[in-house]
């Protein structure tokens, strides 16, 4: 019964799209059947290795670097009030710069190769991670800090990172969706390969079913990454959700 409720609406929507578009003669809105055929033809071949995987690899590299940088800097800033007060306005500004405008700047610095794209992802993803880490570290319970001091427990490694993990995860989630956007944009703006590049090529070449299939693929990647993230979050924050649920009961 529950499964039915989960798939009911998506099934209706899918069927509706299929049926309504079936006889479509509109050049820009091809039948869903055509799009799905194009999807298989376009993406189940060399393009996976040539375009999809390199894009995802750049996303992974940039995201990983942003995680390390953001968490490390966030811990330092969060633990030292003087540092935080000094850098706060600058961080406010840097965070407010819309990440996509970094693309033209970084093209200037790093050309249009892999390095530029990874740098774009890093410099867009790092802020939500950093700022959330700062908040999380600042909010660490003083009693936990005292406990670490008394019992000789190394505070940063054993306590601060774990105690701040709910906020760090929130930042990492925001960063992931920014990262996907930047992965696509950096390739749309200037590139010779990659997912974003290919999709825009299809659009410019009026390969309409292929373009629709690319949009579909980008959507699926976004959904898959979000699902993957939830999986990781569930294991990292199991204690946190359990604790919250326990508190609610009392």
């Amino acid at each position: 019964m529950k499964a039915l409720k989960v798939i009911a609406l998506p099934a209706v929507l899918f069927a509706g799209w299929w049926v309504l578009s079936a006889g479509s003669k509109d050049f820009y809105r091809p039948p869903l059947r055509t799009i799905l055929v194009a999807f298989a033809d376009t993406w189940f071949g060399a393009r996976i290795a040539d375009d999809v995987l390199p894009s995802l690899a750049r996303l992974g590299a940039g995201y990983a670097v942003a995680l390390v940088l953001g968490i490390a800097a966030g811990v330092v800033i969060g633990r030292h009030p003087a540092v935080r007060e000094t850098v706060e306005p600058v961080l406010e500004f840097l965070r407010a710069v819309p990440p996509p405008v970094l693309v033209p700047i970084l093209i200037l610095v790093a050309g249009i190769g892999d390095l530029m794209k990874v740098l774009v992802i890093v410099s867009g993803c790092v802020w939500p991670i950093l700022l959330n880490t700062v908040e999380g570290v600042r909010a660490v319970d003083g009693v936990l800090a005292d406990t670490c001091a008394v019992y000789r427990v190394p505070p940063v490694r054993r306590m601060v990172l774990r105690a701040a993990s709910p906020q760090i995860v929130t930042g990492a989630r925001q960063a992931l969706s920014i990262g996907v956007i930047l992965m696509v944009i950096s390739e749309m703006f200037a590139a010779r390969s990659g997912l974003g590049f290919t999709v825009v090529q299809f659009q410019r070449g009026f390969q309409i079913p292929e373009m629709w299939s690319g949009v579909l693929l980008l959507g699926l990647i976004g959904v898959a990454l979000a699902a993957l993230f939830r999986l990781v979050e569930r294991s990292v924050l199991r204690w946190y959700h359990g604790q919250r649920a326990a508190e609610k009961q009392h």
């Binding site: 319970d141 009693v143 936990l144 005292d146 406990t147 306590m159 774990r162 993990s165 204690w239 946190y240 604790q243």
Partner: peptide, 8 residues
């Protein structure tokens, strides 16, 4: 409640 590590 606050001196025990909730993740352990």
């Amino acid at each position: 409640g606050r001196s025990l590590f909730p993740w352990l």
